[in-house]
C-alpha cells in the first residue's frame, strides 16, 4: 500500500483553515482521526514516526485531559454549590413568572344560569392529577373547550367560555408494555377525569377526549394533532365515533 504524505486516510487535503503540519499532514485530519479513535490515530505508521504529528497529538491529549478535569470539577461542584446557585435562580425566575401568569380562559362551574367560574389552568391541573392516578399514566396537554368544539382555539387572555357543558381534551402517555390495552387505559383516565370534574370542581364535563401517546412518540410531542395514539370520546346525548372495543362509561350529568 502506498503511503501518502498525508497519512493513510485520504480526504480533504487540509482543514477549514488549510492548516498543515510541517510534515504535510492536515492538522484537522489528524484531530479527526484522533476523535474517531485515539489509539488508532497514534498507531498510524506515519504518526508513529513523525515528530510533528506526535507533538500535535500530545498537545491535543493535554487539552483533552484538561477538559476531563473541568468536567469532573463541574460535576462535583454542581452536586454542591451549583445546586444552591440554581435554587437562587429558580426562586428569582419564579417570582417574575408569578407576576406574569397565564391562567387561560374562565370555564363555567355549576348551572348554566350561575355566575361561577374557574380558570383553565387550575381545572387542567386537577384533571392531570386525576389522570395520573391511573397507574403508569402521565398527563401532558389539557385543554377545556365548549362541548361543540373539538379542538383548541385561540382565546384572548381573560376570556370566558360560554356557559354550558364543556369538553376536556387531554393528552396522556402510558408506558409501553403496560398490561392493560390502550383503550382500557383511556377509559380509566376518562372516568377519573369525569369523577374529578364532578366531585372536586363541580364542572359540567360532557366529553373527555383522551389521546394516548406512546412514550416512543414523545419526541414528536410538540404536535399532538396526529399521533398514532388512540383518540376516543364518550359523550352522552351524542353518538360519538369510537372504536367498538372501547367500553366507555359516559360521564353522568353533573347535577349541580
Amino acid at each position: 500500500m502506498e503511503m501518502s504524505p498525508y497519512g493513510p486516510r485520504p480526504g480533504p487535503p487540509a482543514g477549514p483553515e488549510g492548516e498543515a503540519l510541517p510534515c504535510g499532514r492536515a492538522l484537522e485530519d489528524l484531530w479527526d482521526a484522533w476523535e474517531s479513535d485515539p489509539a488508532a490515530a497514534a498507531a498510524e505508521p506515519h504518526a508513529r514516526q513523525c515528530p510533528h504529528c506526535a507533538a500535535a497529538l500530545a498537545d491535543l491529549r493535554t487539552l483533552d485531559d484538561l477538559v476531563r478535569d473541568e468536567l469532573a470539577r463541574a460535576a462535583h461542584a454542581s452536586a454542591r454549590e451549583g445546586d444552591a446557585l440554581a435554587s437562587g435562580v429558580t426562586a428569582r425566575v419564579m417570582d417574575i413568572v408569578r407576576t406574569e401568569l397565564r391562567p387561560g380562559a374562565a370555564v363555567p362551574l355549576g348551572e348554566p344560569e350561575e355566575d361561577a367560574w374557574i380558570v383553565e389552568t387550575a381545572a387542567a391541573r386537577t384533571f392531570r392529577s386525576a389522570a395520573e392516578a391511573v397507574p403508569g399514566v402521565r398527563a401532558g396537554s389539557c385543554r377545556i373547550v365548549p362541548l361543540g368544539d373539538t379542538q383548541r382555539r385561540f382565546r384572548f387572555p381573560g376570556a370566558r367560555l360560554p356557559r354550558g357543558p364543556v369538553r376536556v381534551l387531554l393528552d396522556v402517555t402510558a408506558p409501553p408494555g403496560l398490561e392493560r390495552p390502550v383503550p382500557e387505559v383511556a377509559d380509566a383516565v376518562r372516568q377519573r377525569v369525569t369523577t374529578a370534574a364532578r366531585g372536586e370542581l363541580g364542572m359540567d364535563v360532557h366529553a373527555v377526549d383522551v389521546t394516548v401517546v406512546d412514550l416512543a412518540d414523545l419526541a414528536d410531542l410538540g404536535d399532538l394533532g396526529d399521533t398514532s395514539g388512540l383518540t376516543d370520546t364518550a359523550s352522552p346525548g351524542r353518538s360519538p365515533a369510537r372504536p367498538a372495543d372501547v367500553v366507555g362509561q359516559p360521564p353522568e350529568d353533573s347535577d349541580d
Binding site: 401568569l101 397565564r102 391562567p103 387561560g104 389552568t121 387542567a124 401532558g140 389539557c142 385543554r143 393528552d171
Partner: peptide, 12 residues
C-alpha cells in the same frame, strides 16, 4: 416533553 406541554398552557 410533558412538562413543556403543561408549561406552554400556563402551568407555572
Amino acid at each position: 416533553a410533558l412538562l413543556t406541554a403543561r408549561a406552554r398552557e400556563g402551568d407555572e
